[in-house]
Write a protein that binds this DNA or RNA. Structure first.
Lengths: 110, 110
DNA sequence: TAAACCAATCGTAATATTACAATAACAGTT
DNA sequence: AACTGTTATTGTAATATTACGATTGGTTTA
C-alpha cells in the first residue's frame, strides 16, 4: 500500500511527524541554517548557495512554508523568506518535551 | 529523478536529515514514546499498541535501529528493544544546537 | 520431534518524495 | 508595450516510503 494511517495516531504524534519533515531532508536543513545566519533570503540566494535547480528550491520552500516553520513576504518582484518565530518555538518545545523524557537507566536496559 | 543529492550537503546536514527521519512518521514517534514510558518492549507489544501489521512494525523498528536511536537485544525467542542512550543524547544535542541558534529579531524580519 | 510462538525478510502494490525542464505569472524597467 | 528578472506551477521521470500477506528462521514448549 503506502499511505500513512494517520488515524491510528494521536494529534501530537502526527504533529511531531509533520514538524520533523522540516529537518528530514538535507536541502531543507541547509535552507534553515542559511536563514538562521542571514535572517532572510530569497529563492535566488538559495539556488546559488545549494546548487539545486530553482524549481527544486521552490518546492522545498513551499514544504517549509506549509509546515509553517518559515514565512514569506512579497517584496517587489521577489519574495523574502524568514523563520516564523512562533512556530519555531512551538516545534522546539515539542521536540524538547520528547528529548527530556528520556533518562538513562542506571543498569543496562537491553 | 528523485534521488537526494547528498554530496551537495555537509556531513552535519545529512546527519540531521537522517536523525529527523526517526521522528518523521507518526508510527515511529509512537514507538519512541512507548519506549520512553515502558523502558523496553518487543515487536508484539507494539503490534497491539499501534494497530499496524507485524511486518510494518518490524520495518519501522529496523529503520530506527539503522538510525541508531534504538537498539535490540535477543532475549530468548524474542528481541527486546530500548533507546540507545548515547545516540539519543547525540541527536538531542544536534537538534538543540539548531534550535538555540535562532533568536527572534526585535522588529519584523519579513 | 512436533507444535507453537515470535520476529525478520521477501514480494508486491500503492502512494509519496525528489529533481528538473519548461512554462506561466507577475513586478519592475526601458 | 516590450523586455527583464524573479518565483510559482506544471509535467514528468526516477527513486523512496509505507503497508501487508506470506514465508522463513529462530527459540521455546509439549
Amino acid at each position: 500500500m503506502g499511505v500513512t494511517k494517520t488515524d491510528l495516531f494521536s494529534q501530537v504524534q502526527n504533529d511531531i511527524a509533520v514538524a520533523a519533515k522540516a529537518f528530514s531532508h538535507p536541502a531543507r536543513v541547509a535552507i534553515i541554517q542559511y536563514l538562521l545566519k542571514s535572517n532572510a533570503c530569497i529563492n535566488g540566494d538559495l539556488v546559488l548557495e545549494l546548487g539545486l535547480a530553482q524549481a527544486t528550491i521552490s518546492q522545498h520552500l513551499r514544504e517549509l512554508k506549509e509546515i509553517g516553520i518559515i514565512q514569506g513576504t512579497i517584496e517587489g518582484s521577489r519574495i523574502s523568506y524568514c523563520i516564523n518565530p512562533d512556530r519555531w518555538g512551538q516545534i522546539k518545545n515539542q521536540f524538547n518535551q520528547i528529548f527530556d523524557q528520556f533518562e538513562s537507566p542506571k543498569g543496562q536496559c537491553c
